[in-house]
Structure formats: C-alpha cells, structure tokens
C-alpha cells in the first residue's frame, strides 16, 4: 500500500478554505486536517486559524542566543581586558563597565539575530530536500493544498478536490 501525495490548486483562499472546512467536517475520508499542507503565494493569517494551532519555536532560540551573547560578551571582554599585557587606561579602570555594556549590547543583538536566522532556516525546513510536487502557479496567484493519502483513497480525494473548484491536481508517489 503505497502512499501518495496530492497537490490541488485553487483560485483563491476562499476556495481553499472551503476545502479545508470540508475536510474538517470529514466530508472526505483518509485526510485529516493536520495532514494538510497549504501553499500560498502570500502569507494569510487566517491559514493558522483554519489549520489549527501549529507551533513556532523560533523565539526560544532567539532568547537563548541573546542570553548567550550578553554573557559571552561580559566574560570575553573582561577576561581579555584583565589579561591584556598593557593597560590603556587613561584614568579609567581596567574593566570599564559602561563601555563594555555597549559591546555586550552589540553582542546580544549579533548572536540573537544569527540564531534567529539559522533556526528559521532549520525550523521552516528550508534548504532541505523536497518532493517535486509543486506548481509554478503557486508563486503567482493560486493556492495549493497538499495532502498525503493512501493509494486506496486516491480517487475519492481527487474527486473531492475536483468537485470543490480545484483548478488542477497533481500527484506523486512518496
């Protein structure tokens, strides 16, 4: 029993949301709302409400990056200053806190930004190998819904999509 992936293309969000609503209402078997992957040319906030709460964990990493940055900044700067052979003091202490705060602040942002971006790339699955199930229309104006189903339900789901204003349906074997 092999599994198939289906991509159905819709004209606009309204059509796509109708389909989602119908899937939620169990009008077609073999597809759960959690399996739905919705592709769109723009970001639509309603997608989240329609598909249910899905977690976004980037902020935790950002926080971790920021905390690391500021701690690292403090220890790095003060230990470099303390171990420096000569002390360019100009009447100032060896470890001048106010000036170090400036750099700690910069390091906070630096590490926070980089962790955010790196985590974004990983968490959103960018740069990973993907299936070929894709339509170029997705970057123009059409909305795609991807579902993964068993072979047995292939036809029924296809029909379901067709009946619900799908413009085009593509499929691939997993």
């Amino acid at each position: 029993m092999s599994r198939h992936r289906l991509l159905a293309m819709f004209k606009d969000f309204d059509d796509a949301f109708d389909v989602v609503d119908k899937i939620k209402a169990k009008e077609v078997s073999g597809v759960e709302v959690d399996d739905i992957n919705m592709m769109s040319p723009i970001e639509h906030p309603e997608v989240d409400t329609k598909l249910g709460k899905r977690p976004v964990n980037i902020a935790y990493f950002t926080l971790a990056g920021a905390i690391f940055g500021v701690t690292f900044g403090f220890f790095f700067l003060s230990s470099a200053q303390a171990s420096f052979l000569v002390q360019p003091q100009g009447g100032k202490p060896v470890v001048p806190l106010p000036t170090n705060f400036v750099l700690m602040y910069e390091m906070l942002i630096f590490f926070a930004v980089w962790t955010t971006v790196i985590c974004f790339i990983f968490l959103s699955g960018l740069g990973q190998k993907r299936g070929t199930l894709y339509s170029e229309k997705l970057t123009v104006d059409e909305i795609g819904i991807v579902v993964e189903i068993d072979e047995s339900e292939l036809d029924s789901v296809k029909n379901f999509f067709k009946n619900n204003k799908a413009l085009e349906i593509r499929e691939e074997k997993v």
Partner: peptide, 17 residues
Amino acid sequence: MSFKNILENFSYYRRDA
C-alpha cells in the same frame, strides 16, 4: 584569561583614577 582571575580580582580591575 581565566574566569577565576576576573572574579577574584574584580574590584582591583575596577579601580579608576
């Protein structure tokens, strides 16, 4: 460049003019 050094002598390193 050890943490110990910094922590132990912190007040010394904080002396200004």
